[in-house]
Design a protein around this nucleic acid. Structure first.
Length: 613
RNA sequence: GGCUCCGUAGCUUAAUGGAUAGAGCAUCUGACUACGGAUCAGAAGGUUAGAGGUUCGAGUCCUCUCGGAGUCACCA
């Protein structure tokens, strides 16, 4: 890292002394040299040719000369078509390897004094977590780890959507059809138990609706209101919400229950607490399986009335305005958005009011000047509006807001639908990938080892997590449960396997008490070794990029590249049977550094390394 | 319809405006018998949806066209 800064400053100075021109630091582009050329880092000289009034190759040679005479670590250079390739000395790389090995916090930035809150998962309490939550959780968790490594103090939170019509449906369903059963008496995991009653409610509603469609009332409605060319089936499909609100007895009961909940009716509250506690026990298990955790939970039942004070502020600041009916609005048409209601005429909150209030509450709770919301991209517009309003209100954290928007996970058949039973359950998914890992291990004639179950768990989860994190978050993802996840090629297990290979080496080093001291005497770097050194050197920068872009896929792709280089190194060069003791020592040290960085990098993704596989 | 995002090999995808667009899967060829083959080497596969433009340089920026998705509730 430091060397790049040194090179950059030196290039600026070179341009100044050679051509008498000063230029902005951003004009100096330094990147790792492409594999097909010799060199370690490359300076693009095109931005300077106009100032120098010389041909690109001449400018490159002159700057190269300057760098070589002024920076001891620069050993050689070459210029090809306007690209200045710089070769760093063997001594530099030896120094770097030792410092990377000796620094337990390699790649970790000093604390920057800023706090960032990361909100992720944010489930509803009427059903278990599914595939979509898995992607959300993996993104949220790894993003938190990355921001922490990049220097922030991170607070991980989720907002639990624990109130509203949905949970009332589960509650009512349990009251009517539950016969007093509990997760304990049935042995069903709490979140699944509650989710089953939600599904049952939807089934009962469907039955009621189908019966109702046979009634004279329904027939008359269809006759009076259907559009020409509209079939009876289509008409009733469109009519379902209205039917549920105006005609359904189950619908009436649910609304009644919601009213009683809002009024604080003791029996309803007790039931609500009971059912939610079942769900939370289930969630805890799933989160533990996924290896994610939270510092604080926010509950919608506590926040859904928030935001009134912020609305008052907005009115005072003329960011909001009140209509004659008493409702409060914000006009964002000058920013390309719409007019949005922020408070109903009856004085109650809407969705965005809650989010406004919750943001302010969080700032008061933690003083976090940055907030990241991990939420699917279907809410892009909502967050654009939310952030715009907070900026206009001049909230102190308004410029540290980021919506980590990710593409929905869909199945080959389309979006997952609870009602159609096409939801891929998170628990099932985790069990499935571990089962596949076990099956694969058996096929490979895996020998009996200690901690076999733990290793298989890490391999299976490693495959799943890497599969979901390696692609850019914003990309929509089609997940085929049939094919599930691969264990070969660009996968988690591929990377784990390189780590396992090194682990084997290290155990042998320990057993045979190998002397590592001559490592620094080795100078005849092979290309495979140089690739590894260069890759290791990239790590801290990759973490910063991932943090800046809120994109863990950079880490995943980096780890894959490092593992790939290691596998090649392993195949081409012998470690224990190296020609010279210093070569063996160096390769062992290099391997140790690779395993260290792979462990750290994969750790940022929440992926653990198996001892053996 | 308005706004936003997306379109890269058969499939999944990578690429701070920089060199001959880089990988994996699938297909075809090869490489052990253990420093572990969940590996490695090689072949084949691309008009980066299309057309213009800006630039020394465009998958990347701008305009238009085509195709896909999301959103445009006093729901959350």
């Amino acid at each position: 890292m430091a060397i790049i800064q040194t090179l950059q400053n030196a290039v600026l100075k070179a341009v100044e002394t050679l051509y008498g021109e000063t230029l902005e630091a951003e004009k100096v582009q330094i990147s790792p040299t492409s594999p097909e050329f010799t060199g370690d880092y490359t300076v693009v000289v095109f931005p300077f040719v106009k100032l120098a009034k010389k041909a690109p190759d001449v400018v490159g040679a002159e700057i190269g000369d300057f760098l070589q005479t002024n920076i001891p670590d620069v050993q050689a250079f070459n210029v090809i078509k306007g690209f200045l390739n710089i070769e760093l000395s063997t001594a530099f790389w030896q120094k770097f390897l030792q410092s990377a090995l000796n620094d337990p916090a390699f790649g970790r930035q000093p604390r920057n004094g800023q706090k960032v809150m990361v909100e992720y998962s944010s489930p509803n309490t009427n059903k278990p977590l599914h595939l979509g939550h898995v992607r959300n959780c993996l993104l949220g968790w790894s993003c938190s780890q990355i921001l922490d490594t990049a220097g922030y103090d991170v607070i991980k939170v989720q907002i639990v959507n624990d109130r509203g019509v949905a949970i009332c449906k589960s509650m009512l369903s349990w009251l009517k059809f539950g016969e007093g059963k509990t997760p304990e008496t049935t042995g069903i995991k709490g979140d699944h138990f509650v989710g089953d009653f939600y599904v049952l409610f939807e089934q009962k509603t469907k039955e009621e609706y189908e019966n109702w469609q046979q009634s004279a009332e329904a027939g008359a409605l269809f006759a009076a209101k259907h559009k020409t060319e509209q079939s009876e089936k289509d008409f009733f499909k469109d009519f379902k919400n209205k039917w549920f609100n105006d005609h359904s007895s189950l619908g009436a009961e649910v609304r009644d229950m919601l009213l009683r909940w809002e009024a604080g009716d003791p029996d309803t509250i007790a039931l609500w607490k009971q059912m939610n506690s079942w769900v939370y026990q289930g969630f805890d298990t799933t989160y533990a399986k996924l290896g994610v955790a939270f510092d604080k939970l926010y509950f919608e039942s506590d926040t859904y009335l928030l935001g009134k004070d912020i609305v008052e502020d907005g009115l005072k600041k003329n960011v909001f305005y009140r209509k004659d009916d008493g409702s409060v609005w914000v006009d964002l048409t000058d920013a390309g958005y719409d007019q949005k209601v922020v408070l109903r005429a009856d004085g109650t909150s809407v969705y965005i009011t809650q989010d406004l209030g919750t943001a302010r509450m969080r700032y008061h709770d933690f003083g976090c000047e940055n907030m990241v919301y991990v939420v699917a991209d279907e809410q892009n517009y909502h967050f654009a509006v939310l952030f715009e309003v907070l900026r206009r209100l001049e909230e102190p954290y308004a410029h540290g807001l980021h919506h980590l928007s990710y593409g929905l996970v869909e199945l080959p058949t389309g979006r997952m639908k609870t009602r159609e039973g096409t939801v891929v359950d998170a628990d099932d998914l985790v069990d499935e990938v571990i089962r596949i890992a076990r099956e694969q291990a058996a096929e490979r004639g895996g020998t009996e080892v200690n901690n076999a179950d733990e290793n298989l768990r890490r391999v299976g989860l490693g495959a799943l997590k890497f599969f979901m994190i390696k692609v850019n978050p914003k990309r929509r993802m089609i997940f085929n449960p049939e094919e599930s996840v691969d264990l070969q090629g660009q996968t988690g297990p591929y990377i784990q396997y390189s780590w396992v290979r090194i682990n084997g080496l290290m155990q042998r080093v320990k057993k045979e008490n190998v002397d590592l001291s001559p490592a620094t005497a080795y100078t005849d770097f092979q290309p495979q070794e140089k690739d590894l050194l260069k890759a290791l050197h990239e790590y801290p920068g990759v973490v910063l990029t991932a943090a800046r872009e809120y994109d863990p896929s950079h880490i995943a792709n980096y780890c894959y590249g490092l593992a790939k280089s290691y596998h090649r190194f392993w195949h081409d060069l012998s470690v224990f049977n190296a020609d010279a003791p210093e070569a063996r020592a160096f390769r062992l040290e290099l391997s140790r550094a690779v395993s260290k960085v792979l462990g750290k990098g994969m750790g940022l993704l929440g992926i653990e390394m198996p001892e053996r596989m």
